[in-house]
Design a protein around this nucleic acid. Structure first.
Length: 490
RNA sequence: GGGGGCGUAGCUCAGUCGGUAGAGCAUCGGCCUUUUAAGCCGCUGGUCACAGGUUCAAGUCCUGUCGCCCCUACCA
């Protein structure tokens, strides 16, 4: 008996035998349970010694069987719940009438037991059970009890197996929750309010990316999945909501890589009467609080390098970095194009600003390992950004890089409706996608008057990657996009 | 889009020069009341991703398809 169907039939048969014994193999409500972590905490105060069984220290614990050691009329089970593992001991003498059902248990089943806390001869904290409750029969056998699940395709396609078979995976997602909560708490502490804006948009904007398109049947209109919440959040500034943020799932119909998933999560925020310098402090502030909540300090490993998140982070002008690493001035179009030739870039159909940016990406980005704010971008690339008061060709924008990866993007927001409208109408040559798609209602909103403001977007998946030392965005997204396969396969 | 790699039992993996499809764990049957991946004895279990081709003979070589991973390009 060993093909998958045979293994499952064996387990189905055991579920049937449990029913014959009057036991529902799928259990029901089970109350007053202690987590395995809580049991450990309690045991720490009991001063147990090897061989103790404390009949006065009772506990009820539930979880999944991940290891099973049967020694005749005594069974040791390793039970896993959301907080960790704990050993159960079930002896025929103690559980009496339940013994026949216990012999029908398999790896992967969920059970619950009441028992006395104790410690075995070898010093292992153990729940010595005297009652037994069947909570769920696993029909599909779990992966290797020792190696877990290592096939990456199966790990992503069947993440639920990955999560219970590979405990470090679950910890990454616990940390993800802590990080996102820290970001929320930080912003709430700065007097922001959290809002929700449309994910289905008739006009997409706020970023340069291809959208997913869909259709609303009742209204018979074309809709786009948002690529960014930017233009809606800025409308809220017009409405007098002076500090707003949204944890926004964005959808971009682009390539997939270790740093890109078609749907990803950003926190985007706008602060009236602020500017991009304030936004730098917001990035530092939310990251610092997340690190404090996670523990582990501000110097953290990422792959082969150590990243130092101590504030303040390095602040560098875009133009200075370009001069340092490419040896050309961002305002000298001829020199930039000559450099592009050296780099083998075909720039004949690109606007000057686009060439500058391609050269920047190829020469500078590799040097941006430690957290760095790169600020004052070529204005032509930034249709939603306010111009530098002393140089029309510079936009008050920064991107923040960590480990060569863009973590966030911020502006001193453009609030002049005439300039905004002109920017929307200008199409930049050589840019595949543009963030300058005319949104007349947004221009109208600016005409009513938007306060000067700073705005920021931070890629939360990438922040989680960095802080949890995860090398792929798929390792921090529970169900990363995979090509669909028929349910009968894999 | 381009390049490279991978796909063998439920899981983790071997498989040499092309010559009978293998191991551990799990399962199944025995023994076993203090184990720690329990142990011991015994037995099962395969569309070698899929479809073709070369060959006396293909898991192995060739072509195509599907899926996944990495690099690269685009992007955030």
């Amino acid at each position: 008996m060993s093909t998958e169907e045979q293994l499952k039939d064996e387990r189905r048969g055991k579920a049937g035998k449990m029913r014959d014994l009057g036991i529902d193999p799928y259990g029901g409500r089970y109350e007053n349970i202690l987590s395995t972590a809580a049991v450990r905490e309690r045991a720490d105060g009991l001063d147990l010694t090897a061989g103790d069984i404390r009949t006065d220290e009772r506990a009820r614990v539930a979880g999944r069987i991940v290891l099973q050691r049967v020694m005749g009329n005594l069974v040791f089970l390793t039970i896993r719940d959301g907080s960790g593992d704990l050993q159960f001991a079930l002896s025929k003498k103690n559980v009496r009438d339940d013994w026949p059902a216990i012999k029908l248990l398999d790896l992967g089943d969920h059970i619950g037991c009441d028992g006395s806390l104790g410690m075995t001869k070898t010093g292992e904290l153990t729940l010595w059970a005297d009652t037994f409750t069947m909570l769920s029969k696993a029909i599909h056998p779990p992966p290797s009890k020792w190696h877990g699940l290592s096939d990456v395709e199966l790990r992503y396609r069947h993440r639920y197996v990955d999560l219970f078979a590979n405990p470090p995976v679950r910890d990454v997602f616990r940390q993800r929750s802590l990080i996102i909560q820290a970001v929320r708490d930080y912003l709430i502490g700065c007097d922001y309010i959290e809002v929700e804006t449309p994910a289905l948009q008739p006009i997409y904007g706020g970023a340069a990316a291809k959208p997913f398109t869909t259709h609303h049947n009742a209204l018979d209109i074309k809709l786009y999945m948002r690529i960014s919440p930017e233009l809606y959040l800025k409308r809220l500034l017009v409405g007098g909501m002076e500090r707003v943020f949204e944890v926004s799932r964005n959808f971009r119909n682009e390539g997939i890589s270790t740093k890109h998933n078609p749907e990803f999560t950003m926190v985007e925020l706008y602060e009236a009467y602020g500017d991009y310098n304030v936004m730098m402090e917001r990035v530092e502030g939310m990251t610092s609080l997340a690190i404090e909540r996670l523990g582990g300090g501000f110097k953290r490993p990422y792959g082969e390098v150590e990243i130092d998140y101590s504030v303040p982070w390095r602040r560098c002008k875009y133009g200075d970095l370009l001069l340092e690493h490419a040896g050309v001035s961002m305002s000298d179009a001829q020199a930039v194009r000559k450099k592009a030739d050296e780099l083998g870039i075909d720039h004949t159909k690109m606007a000057d600003a686009v060439v500058v940016n391609v050269v920047f990406e190829q020469t500078v980005e590799d040097h941006l390992v430690q957290p760095t704010f790169v600020y004052d971008y070529p204005a032509a690339l930034c249709p939603l950004t306010r111009r530098h008061p002393e140089d029309e060709n510079i936009a008050l924008r920064f991107e923040v890089y960590v480990n060569r990866m863009e973590l966030g993007n911020a502006y001193t927001e453009l609030n002049d409706p005439a300039v905004q409208e002109a920017n929307f109408r200008e199409q930049l040559a050589g840019e595949g996608d543009t963030m300058a798609i005319m949104d007349e209602d947004f221009v109208l909103a600016l005409e009513y008057g938007m306060p000067p403001a700073g705005g920021l977007g931070v890629g939360l998946d990438r922040l989680v990657m960095l802080l949890t030392n995860s090398q792929s965005i798929r390792d921090v997204i529970l169900f990363p996009l995979q090509r669909a396969r028929r349910a009968t396969e894999v």
